[in-house]
Design a protein around this nucleic acid. Structure first.
Length: 639
RNA sequence: GCCGGUGUAGCUCAGGGGUAGAGCAACGCAUUCGUAAUGCGUAGGUCGUCGGUUCAAAUCCGACCACCGGCUCCA
């Protein structure tokens, strides 16, 4: 439900592994994917030479490489990589041709039963995964095998000509993956590797991975002292430290200005709400798994104790929502809805737009937590719009404009837009189908007017309404949902919301959930990576650092610092006895955008020697000129 | 939650059954210096936690916790 601002995550490799490609798509598979797919076979060949009993599942190419899923009693570790790679090099050197053979379903099944598929020879054990994968191939589709040397695999291809083409490869990691992505099935070892046309391209890719590590928001967050996640406080709970808090404050001010411009009303609501509120909304008890357990009142606890209620019974009643208490809010909409519901509304009052930086809590699985992008408590730049069906289109346009302005100002242009529509064949959706048609048309209309590419995904809508998501990639290529705009026909119904129309009759308003950042935590994390910590001046925790060349200009440096502070600039003074080179190096490492080098020359002329952390030497303007220039850059939120 | 890996000073890391190591950062002293590291010195750690084996555990074993990668999930 709400989803409003659900933080969704679609690993591309997962999609690729479960999607069945059409024949045409396979034909079009680009050269690099083909090469990587072949390299996966080379790796499988090598692994089977080392461990002939290995059972292979699937081994497709993925965005930056390939993997192969393997069941094996020996746990493959990075220490094995060298051994496997050495064996792979032998396979490559042998330059075996990839040979395709189209076979009947029965012939393939026979080979799988004899253990010959995904193997170097017949084995005592059947190729159990291949057998099942064979069953998944639709009737009528061609069934083909690929051979290289002794290795035979069930595979639709296509492949490169010979193993000798896979020259530049490297194994990267090993991880677990469930067979067919089903957590109730066997857990397999997934060995990841990458392959390029030549060693130069491979080296460049590996350097890119190293660079990505340096940009990782967890690393930069620590280096720049922006935030921490403290074991003593709790997993997935972010502490914004003073410097990180500056960034968040600036972002919130920025968005608040935009909201004021667009006619939003700001509200504040508490972090908790009564269980009944969430029973009305439908979030409790159905989504208990992803919530912190309720805060039960003393009275309720005492009554249960007096009754001699057992722990098991208490658990039952809690799960059934039969114990009174409060919930840490998993979303903000119910609170906002109650504000809307507190008064009568004429159609003339609509739309009502209630905005809040609202902090919500969700019990994410421990294995899913990480950095700022997946946490258990986060603040959404949330708002709920209550409007008539006729106003939906216009409101959606406004929401998208907002997202676009925000991402544009920050220069985050590398996102994709996903339009999630209902599955016409399903009947799980609430609301009038005619209204759905209108809402979907309005969303499509708005998003196509945005001037960015988008994909329509049927069946991806929430049951309560269609939505638009802005998805960006982090530094290691994982996709994260940021901004979202969602239409909701469900909650107005559940809370029996009404307004009086021009016909003097009660009508049901439509709700729109939207959050341009998604959450402050996730957004800040991705922003850190986007800028590699080199924030534009308006966001930088420390905007200017004053660097006297020696103690002789300490007084002048002090006056410059004071003048800047007076002008509302976040400025620091490096009064250490270090040489100027060391001071510059330190400011550079701290990613302070502007450094002012002040020596006798500047003091005499009333100037400042300006150095920018990325642009280098920017000349020596008069102090007043620099202040004016800086204020313009800050106030204009220029990048 | 699942599989695997990791956990030694604030950070990056070495070491490894017998008194805990380096570089950077911090602190002190000297240096007063012009665009990415001045020199010398000082201080800093129950080696993630708990338990076991041992004369002796940071080191070996087990459990737990946290982090990293992936899987699953994500109203």
């Amino acid at each position: 439900m709400d989803a409003a601002l659900s933080l969704r995550f679609f690993p591309e490799f997962f999609l690729m592994s479960v999607e069945r490609k059409s024949l045409e798509q396979r034909e079009q598979m680009d050269d690099l994917s083909r090469l990587r797919h072949s390299c996966a076979h080379v790796m499988a060949t090598a692994i089977l030479r080392l461990w002939p009993q290995a059972q292979l599942a699937g081994g497709p190419p993925v965005e930056n490489g390939f993997y192969y899923d393997i069941a094996l009693d020996h746990a493959i570790t990075p220490e094995d990589f060298e051994k496997i790679e050495a064996e792979m090099r032998r396979v490559v050197k042998a330059n075996e041709p990839f040979r395709k053979e189209v076979v009947s379903r029965e012939a393939a099944a026979e080979l799988a039963r004899s253990g010959r598929l995904g193997a170097l020879s017949e084995r005592g054990e059947p190729s159990r995964f291949k057998l099942e994968m064979l069953d998944d191939i639709p009737e009528g589709e061609e069934i083909s095998l690929f051979y290289n040397g002794d290795f035979a695999d069930l595979c639709a291809g296509p492949h490169v000509g010979r193993t000798g083409n896979c020259k530049a490869f490297k194994l990267l990691s090993v991880a677990a993956a469930y067979f067919k992505g089903d957590s109730s099935r066997e857990s397999l070892q997934r060995v990841y590797g990458t392959c390029f046309k030549n060693s130069t391209a491979l080296r460049e890719h590996l350097e890119k991975l190293e660079e990505a590590k340096r940009r990782d928001h967890r690393r930069i967050g620590r280096e720049m002292d922006l935030f921490q996640i403290d074991e003593a406080v709790g997993q997935g709970l972010v502490l914004w430290k003073p410097k990180g808090a500056v960034i968040r404050r600036e972002l919130q001010e920025f968005i608040t200005e935009e909201l004021d411009r667009q006619g939003y009303s700001q509200v504040f609501t508490p972090h908790i709400g009564r269980l009944g509120l969430y029973q009305t909304s439908g979030h409790y008890p159905y989504y208990q798994e992803s919530q912190y357990p309720p805060v039960v009142t003393r009275e309720a606890l005492k009554a249960l104790a007096d009754e001699g209620c057992s722990c098991a019974e208490l658990n039952n009643r809690l799960e059934g929502g039969r114990v009174d208490g409060f919930l840490l809010k998993p979303m903000n909409c119910p609170h906002h809805i109650r504000i809307f519901a507190s008064g009568h509304h004429s159609y003339r009052d609509l739309p009502v737009r209630l905005a809040e930086f609202g902090t919500v809590y969700r019990w994410e699985q421990s294995g899913e937590l990480g950095g700022m992008t997946r946490v258990r408590g986060f603040t959404q730049d949330d708002a709920h719009i209550f409007c008539t069906q006729d106003q939906v289109a216009e409101e959606i346009r406004g929401c998208l404009d907002l997202v676009k302005v925000i991402l544009g100002t920050l220069g985050m242009e590398d996102y994709r837009v996903r339009l999630s529509l209902r599955d016409p064949a399903s009947d799980k959706y609430v609301g009038d189908p005619a209204n759905w048609d209108k809402a979907e048309a309005a969303l499509r209309d708005a998003v196509s007017g945005l001037g960015v590419e988008y994909t329509e995904e049927l069946g991806e809508a929430a049951f309560y309404g269609p939505k638009i998501d802005f998805v960006v990639k982090d530094v290691i290529g994982r996709e994260w949902q940021l901004g979202t705009v969602q239409v909701d026909y469900n909650l107005p119904e559940r809370f029996d919301l009404q307004y009086v129309g021009s016909d003097n009759q009660p009508h049901r308003p439509v709700m729109i959930h939207r959050a341009p950042f998604g959450s402050m935590e996730r957004f800040a994390g991705l922003l850190i990576e986007h800028f590699a910590g080199h924030f534009p001046v308006w966001l930088a925790p420390e905007q200017v650092r004053v660097l006297p060349v020696s103690d002789k200009t300490a007084d002048y440096a002090g006056r410059v610092r004071a003048a800047l502070a007076e002008a509302g600039v976040r400025v620091a003074l490096d009064a250490t006895a270090d040489k100027i080179g060391a001071k510059i190096r330190r400011a550079q490492i701290d990613r302070t955008p502007y450094m002012l080098v002040l020596g006798p020359r500047e003091e005499e002329e009333g100037t400042v020697a300006v150095r920018h952390s990325r642009r280098g030497d920017c000349g020596s303007p008069k102090l007043e000129e620099f202040v004016a220039m800086l204020r313009g850059e800050i106030d204009g939120r220029r990048r």
